[in-house]
């Protein structure tokens, strides 16, 4: 960190100068290319972008899978069963699911680690707050990334206990997936419990999709608007797609 008066302190003595030290640092960085890159904030952001994109991929498939509830109880339960048998006998039972679970856990862990590290770095960079701070153009979405992310994570934990494990489900662990799902969303407060995090997820992605493009160097003045439009459209479609099932149950289209 820079101490007081650095502006006036001689930058370095010619022989043991900080300049020399800095040159050494940049030429003698150890470690592989990937780990060196990760040390910088830009590298962390790239990790967030890639992990975010992978999670988005999962969510797209998950959302489409969920739409099977409209095809009826059997179709949905078969789908859930299929998820557990796919890949057999090459994979053990539920092998695919476990691979996916481990993969998602690692991805989420990376995503959260980078998020936490960046947050810490940001807090250190602004130890003294402004008395008055006005926002000029930042969006609500961009400001809610951190808390939004935490709430989404909490939701996922609850969600797994609810629909995968079943302990948090009104229909209990014994029920089949379709029953659990319907049991949930016949209760308006559980619909709300799903809808709120989903909206937050929508916000997270509205900013996240554009942000990921920017983080990976895919931005550009001319593309800023199209990418942002796409991000908004994508977030809306995804959230709406997810909401179809709960709303379908609530209004009685799915029983």
């Amino acid at each position: 960190m820079i101490d007081r008066g650095a502006a006036t302190a001689p930058v370095q003595a010619p022989d043991q100068g900080a300049g020399r030290a800095r040159t050494e640092r940049t030429t003698a960085t150890k470690g592989s290319r990937a780990t060196t890159r990760y040390r910088g904030a830009v590298g962390k952001k790239a990790v967030m972008a890639v992990t975010g994109a992978l999670m988005i991929g999962f969510l797209v498939l998950h959302m489409i899978g969920n739409l099977k509830v409209f095809a009826g109880r059997d179709s949905f339960n078969d789908y859930a069963a299929w998820l557990r048998t796919v890949g057999e006998p090459m994979l053990p039972p539920s092998g695919f699911l476990w691979i996916q679970r481990i993969g998602l856990l690692v991805i989420l862990a990376l995503h959260i680690t980078a998020a936490v590290q960046l947050t810490v770095q940001a807090k250190r960079a602004r130890p003294v707050k402004y008395h008055v701070k006005r926002r000029v153009q930042q969006s609500y979405a961009s400001r809610t990334m951190r808390w939004g992310g935490v709430i989404i994570a909490a939701f996922v934990v609850y969600h797994i206990l609810d629909l995968t494990v079943g302990v948090a489900n009104p229909a209990g662990t014994a029920a089949d997936p379709y029953t659990r799902l319907v049991a949930d969303f016949q209760r308006w407060y559980l619909v709300v419990a799903y809808a709120v995090p989903l909206l937050l997820l929508g916000l997270h992605l509205r900013h996240g999709v554009w942000s990921a493009a920017q983080s990976l160097g895919r931005g550009g003045t001319a593309r800023e608007r199209p990418i942002k439009l796409f991000a908004t459209g994508f977030a809306v479609v995804l959230v709406a797609g997810f909401l179809l099932a709960p709303v379908g149950v609530l209004v009685g289209v799915v029983k």
């Binding site: 930058v11 003595a13 010619p14 300049g19 020399r20």
Partner: peptide, 8 residues
């Protein structure tokens, strides 16, 4: 300056 030749 970086090369240590100028003391600013």
């Amino acid at each position: 300056i970086q090369a240590g030749k100028i003391e600013m």
